[in-house]
């Protein structure tokens, strides 16, 4: 079994903490993994991405080869499009929040961006921000998106929940539960499709 995942967004939106949660779950499952990140200037609103590779066999490259990514998980729709050259165009999925993060003057029309995402064979575009907000956890968008993606990750939701417990445990039960609820709400969206 192998899963190649790209997690992406804009600095500070939590794309990299989603990566940490999947990694933790994979580690528990005894899988091999490699996770390459862009570091550096992320705090200043630039794009961030992480290549996360999981496999039951040893992994060679830190980078996912073009056209072989199984799933792009994005907290921002235009960012999801940036990594399409990596996507497996037949079987790969794009799961993304639908609300643009506009911090550049030339951000394209939202509807055009979403139309591009929908052109991908397998995609889920949804308002994860609203779900997070309704749960009283406005910073939980990344968890909602991850929850929706979990359906296609070949990793049980329960394993991701355990990973949330072990990563956020230090911050107390309230934080853990808020994140788990966001994960579950996201999963419900995917299950309904």
């Amino acid at each position: 079994m192998k899963i190649d995942i790209i997690l992406c967004g804009v600095g500070g939106m939590g794309a990299l903490s989603s990566a940490a949660i999947i990694s933790q779950a994979a580690l528990e499952m005894g899988m091999y993994m490699k996770q390459a990140e862009t570091h550096g200037m992320a705090q200043r609103g630039g794009d961030v991405q992480s290549h996360l590779r999981l496999s039951d066999k040893e992994i060679a490259s830190d980078l996912i080869p073009d056209g072989q990514c199984d799933i792009i998980i994005s907290v921002e729709p235009m960012e999801a499009l940036r990594y399409l050259p990596f996507l497996n165009k037949e079987e790969g999925w794009v799961i993304t929040n639908e609300n643009p993060f506009i911090n550049i003057p030339n951000y394209p029309e939202k509807e055009e961006v979403l139309a591009e995402v929908r052109k991908v064979k397998n995609s889920i575009v949804f308002n994860a921000d609203k779900i997070a907000l309704d749960l009283g956890n406005p910073k939980g968008t990344n968890m909602v998106v991850l929850g929706a993606a979990s359906k296609y990750l070949k990793i049980d939701l329960e394993k991701l929940e355990n990973a949330v417990r072990s990563i956020f445990g230090k911050k107390g039960d309230a934080v853990v539960m808020a994140n788990i609820n966001a994960l579950r709400a996201g999963r419900e969206v995917a299950d309904k499709i």
Binding site: G11, A42, P65, L84, P85, F86, K89
Partner: peptide, 28 residues
């Protein structure tokens, strides 16, 4: 990257989708 090396060896390498033209750079 894997694709560059594959092409150097004359292998057929997989390709994804092109980046849609409307995608704008997001400099720091």
């Amino acid at each position: 990257n894997p694709a560059k090396v594959g092409k150097a060896l004359g292998l057929k390498v997989s390709e994804g989708l092109p980046v849609p033209e409307l995608v704008a750079p997001r400099p720091p």
